[in-house]
């Protein structure tokens, strides 16, 4: 029996037919993408903020990454025992520079690698797997 999977924060993302989808928005006037959703366009050169819901995801290139070598303070949550993890900053083809954990170990990650957005487990609580968006090198 597979464990119950629950988003770590509701409404930000979903997994549709195994594909990771981030729920953001886009200004239809200047095409600026936002994640999470934004109520207004923040582009000072845009004089007609017109926000529409927009889903993001897909592939991108790893701009850089860092490693959490020590357990971070609350409100961070992670499974015990703590295992150092990688956080990637990715330039997605859809126009967002997005931050997420990487599924790979620190020694496996390479700047400039092609990555895919996925949904994966972040930590466990009350018998459930709490999920978030992550990157996987391809």
């Amino acid at each position: 029996m597979s464990e119950e999977r629950v988003p770590c924060v509701e409404g930000l993302f979903s997994e549709e037919n195994g594909v990771a989808v981030l729920h953001g928005s886009k200004c239809s006037n200047c095409q600026t993408p936002y994640f999470p959703r934004s109520a207004a366009c923040h582009n000072p050169d845009c004089d007609d903020s017109n926000m529409e819901d927009f889903d993001f995801g897909g592939k991108g290139v790893l701009w850089s990454y860092s490693v959490a070598d020590f357990p971070p303070p609350p409100p961070h949550k992670f499974d015990q025992p703590f295992v150092p993890y990688v956080m990637g900053v990715v330039d997605l083809d859809c126009g967002l520079r997005l931050i997420a954990q990487m599924v790979e170990k620190p020694e496996e990650v390479k700047v400039d690698a092609q990555v895919q957005l996925i949904i994966d487990t972040l930590y466990h609580e009350d018998g459930k797997a709490l999920t978030t968006w992550k990157f996987k090198q391809i």
Binding site: S64, Y65, S66, A68, P72, M87, I99, A100
Partner: peptide
């Protein structure tokens, strides 16, 4: 800030090490 910590787990020094790695 809360979303970054809860959904990603990015403590302060990670910000600097991302820049250093780049």
């Amino acid at each position: 800030e809360f979303l970054r910590q809860r959904c990603i787990g990015m403590p302060g020094p990670s910000f600097w090490s991302t820049l250093a790695r780049r």
